[in-house]
């Protein structure tokens, strides 16, 4: 199986996968923390994790994570368009992840809009947005795990 690269060997190319991994972990944890399960399933009983049962705190963390994610998305997208696309191309697994990530971000944006004081969506649309946000995240996590086991990265070097 041909291993693909996540990024080049530049300084940010080494840092980005780490940053992305940590960010994904934070977003997944704080996202699942929005479900009333951490207290029920003793997660918040683990020493040092009592805060995880505080819905407002995990919500705040999720929002801060989203800010970092959006900044990172802007950086990676333009870094690719301005220079990296000459050296690397998106793999099939990268494309799948990108689509799922777009689903997470788009539904997440609608969730953020919904939480603004003067924005009211219809009940049906609210339901679709809330459940699809969770669905996209679950699909992304399963896909990312599968691609990690398969050794498939986001991008691969172009051969000249």
């Amino acid at each position: 199986m041909r291993r693909t690269e996540t990024r080049g060997k530049t300084k940010d190319g080494r840092a980005l996968p780490w940053l992305w991994g940590i960010l994904l972990g934070v977003m997944a944890f704080s996202g699942f923390g929005q479900l009333p399960i951490f207290k029920r399933y003793y997660i918040s009983d683990i020493p040092g994790l009592a805060w995880s049962a505080d819905f407002y705190l995990t919500h705040r963390i999720h929002y801060v994570g989203a800010i970092v994610l959006l900044a990172l998305a802007g950086y990676v997208a333009f870094d690719y368009l301005l220079g990296n696309r000459r050296h690397v191309r998106l793999t099939g697994s990268g494309f799948v992840r990108l689509c799922l990530l777009a689903g997470i971000v788009i539904t997440g944006v609608f969730r953020v809009l919904k939480n603004l004081p003067d924005v009211v969506f219809s009940p049906g649309f609210t339901l679709v947005v809330d459940i699809s946000h969770l669905g996209f995240m679950m699909a992304y996590l399963f896909a990312a795990l599968a691609f990690l086991i398969m050794g498939r990265g986001w991008v691969e070097q172009k051969s000249f």
């Binding site: 800010i67 959006l70 802007g74 333009f78």
Partner: peptide, 12 residues
């Protein structure tokens, strides 16, 4: 969140 992607693009 509105400013974040702009900051990312600026960095790139």
């Amino acid at each position: 969140m509105v400013i974040a992607p702009v900051a990312g693009v600026a960095a790139a």
